[in-house]
Amino acid sequence: MINTYHTSLPPPPVPPRQGAHRPATGRATPLLWFLSVVMVLQMGVTFGGFVYLFRKSSTISQAAEKVGFLSGSVPFQDSGVVAHMAPESDSGSFTSKTLKWNRAHSLLVKVTYLYTPGALKILIPGEYYVYSQVTFSKMHPKAPLFHSIVSRRSMENKVLLRAYASLNNEKPLTSFQGGVFKLEKDEELSLNVTDTSLVNLEVTSTTFGLFML
């Protein structure tokens, strides 16, 4: 039998095979752009958080150092040069106005203590923070109460700092002073008071020291 059926329509398309993927068109979908923007923003927020925490910790450290200075503690850097002196218990028996210090109970690193003049001798020149704290427990009948940090260089004495105090109702009074100075090799520093017999010589009440910046 001869098939005489003819048509001019094209044949139907072949159905896609299972597992085949549509080729990429080269354009990102809106969802992909959104996710990219979110990731960039998250990275920026994370980096900003680290910067904020770093600056905050630095500010706290600086504040702690300032509190240490005001409280009379020894907040020194790791320069290797430091002195923090404990008072000699019988300093009040000396006629001199210079306080004496107990070497065995003091902190001395790369600084020499000369007992006879009661002075700290600088071995390494540089810029130093020098401080003193004195507690007076008695009044003087005529002279005002004070403590002075005195520098001796080339047989010449110079007052670096002086603080005055005034007792009220005969109660002990503590005064603190400190400052930054450029000190030379072999320069000697001592602490003078109105009268050594008026000073409270407890370790936590009276002290003298320095550290290199």
Rank of each mutant, 00 (worst) to 15 (best):
M1D: 13
M1F: 15
N3Q: 11
N3S: 14
N3K: 07
T7P: 02
L9P: 01
R17M: 09
R22I: 10
A24P: 07
T29A: 07
L31C: 01
L32D: 12
W33S: 12
F34I: 09
S36I: 09
S36V: 11
V40D: 04
V40L: 12
G44K: 12
G44H: 04
T46V: 10
F47Y: 10
G48L: 03
G48F: 10
G49L: 06
L53R: 14
F54Q: 13
R55M: 12
R55I: 09
S61Q: 12
Q62D: 15
S71Q: 13
G72V: 10
V74D: 11
V74Y: 14
F76C: 11
F76G: 05
Q77H: 13
Q77V: 02
Q77G: 10
D78Q: 14
S79P: 06
V81G: 01
A83W: 01
M85W: 03
M85H: 10
A86K: 12
E88I: 00
E88P: 00
F94K: 07
T95G: 15
K100C: 03
K100G: 04
N102M: 04
N102F: 05
R103W: 02
A104K: 15
L108C: 02
K110H: 12
V111W: 02
V111L: 11
L114W: 01
L114C: 05
G118S: 03
L120H: 09
L120A: 04
P125L: 12
Y129K: 05
S132D: 13
V134S: 08
V134C: 07
H140W: 05
K142M: 08
A143S: 13
L145F: 01
L145M: 02
H147L: 03
I149R: 04
S151Q: 10
S154A: 14
N157W: 08
N157M: 10
L167H: 08
L167Q: 08
L173W: 08
T174N: 09
Q177T: 10
G178Q: 10
G179D: 15
V180E: 03
V180L: 01
L183P: 03
D186Q: 12
D186T: 09
E187Y: 02
E188K: 14
L191D: 09
D195M: 03
T196L: 01
S197V: 05
L198N: 03
L198V: 00
L201Y: 08
T206W: 03
F208I: 04
G209Y: 09
F211R: 00
